[in-house]
Design a protein around this nucleic acid. Structure first.
Lengths: 195, 195
DNA sequence: TCGCCGATTGACCGTCCGGTCAAGTCGCCA
DNA sequence: TGGCGACTTGACCGGACGGTCAATCGGCGA
């Protein structure tokens, strides 16, 4: 809502983002009211609207920043890795590690994916990640002995495995990242290999 | 809400279920109001509450009946199939065929999974399906040469692949069932096989 | 033809919620 | 020290929504 922010103001804004993210992750977006957020912080409602134009704007910012962070993590993990299959493995491990460290954001993304307003935003972010994976698969098809199946569909299949295992084992059951990642990688890479 | 229903009443009830399911699938559960539903049918609001105690009750009934139908379809597909890997394949194909035929219900399940109230109901249904898959995998481990990985996690991975491909290709892109099913089966069974 | 009862109407209620705003408070700088 | 502007307060508004209910309809059995 405002451009000029003092250090104190910037901290308040961050506090709003953190508090809201925590509540959204816990109860979902719609069931969490703006009053809930400001009450949890012990401030008046006006504080919220001093820093954000609307509840939707805050949510969009949470979504955008978390997607950006995740992508950075993935890119860092695969930079300098030559083999396309290794890049897929590193990408899976990096994603799962990030999900584990940011379970709040993971939960919020789940909620947002089922929302009329936010689903399109998420879908575009997902398209980017899917394109990355698809590229690695296509390269692997050319370079090595890889199953001759549609790379786009294979990319979706991989994301399905990773997303599901993250939700059910990393988040719900709090399993160690490596346990989940090892199985995800084993299952996925075997699924790609030519029979 | 009522026990005694004339044939006309039973038809009205079904009409409410169908109309609501269509609207829920299109816009989601919360954004669809009871007024939207009855307006779409051209009747008064009292009609809704004559047949259902609440909006939640109607949603729960939609969820319960669709889960029951899906399970029946899966069971029918694998009955009489001896090989556990074949049972997994038949289960995947039956599920995808059902999803394609009932895209409304598939969309509703997606919404419900992100809802505080309905997620537990869905989770229990899912546990049943997961237990089925896990059993087939365990049998396959004993009987044949299958990857020595945690059968429970493998079951979740398979469900992740199937759910994701159903959403992105069957529902969003309207691909033929066989195209999607062939890839899902190929990827999945390869993922299970021992290296 | 009468009366019962399943079915229907739609105005109305209480509540919640996102968002507004007039009235401040507080700290920094001239 | 005066005042400006960043920041905060919380009562209030308008609208939406789930749910209620007294009144009414209409088809069918007696």
């Amino acid at each position: 809502m405002r451009d000029k922010l003092t250090p104190k103001g910037r901290e308040r804004r961050e506090q709003l983002l953190r508090t809201a993210a925590g509540l959204f992750a816990e109860r979902g977006y719609h069931p969490t009211s703006v009053s809930d957020i400001v009450t949890a912080m012990g401030v008046g409602k006006g504080v919220f609207y001093w820093y954000f134009a609307s509840k939707d704007e805050l949510m969009t910012e949470i979504l955008r920043s978390s997607s950006r962070e995740l992508r950075r993590r993935q890119q860092a993990a695969i930079s300098g890795v030559d083999d396309p299959l290794d890049r897929i493995e590193m990408g899976i491990r990096a994603s799962l590690a990030w999900f584990k460290e940011h379970r709040d954001y993971f939960a919020i993304i789940q909620f947002a994916a089922a929302d009329e307003v936010f689903a399109p935003v998420l879908a575009r972010n997902d398209d980017v990640a899917l394109a990355d994976t698809t590229r690695h698969i296509s390269e692997a098809v050319v370079a090595k002995s890889i199953a001759d199946l549609d790379p786009v569909m294979l990319a979706h299949a991989i994301h399905g495995v990773v997303g599901r295992l993250a939700r059910d084992f990393l988040i719900d059951r709090d399993e160690p990242v490596d346990t989940v990642a090892d199985l995800a990688v084993a299952f996925t890479l075997r699924g790609l290999r030519a029979g």
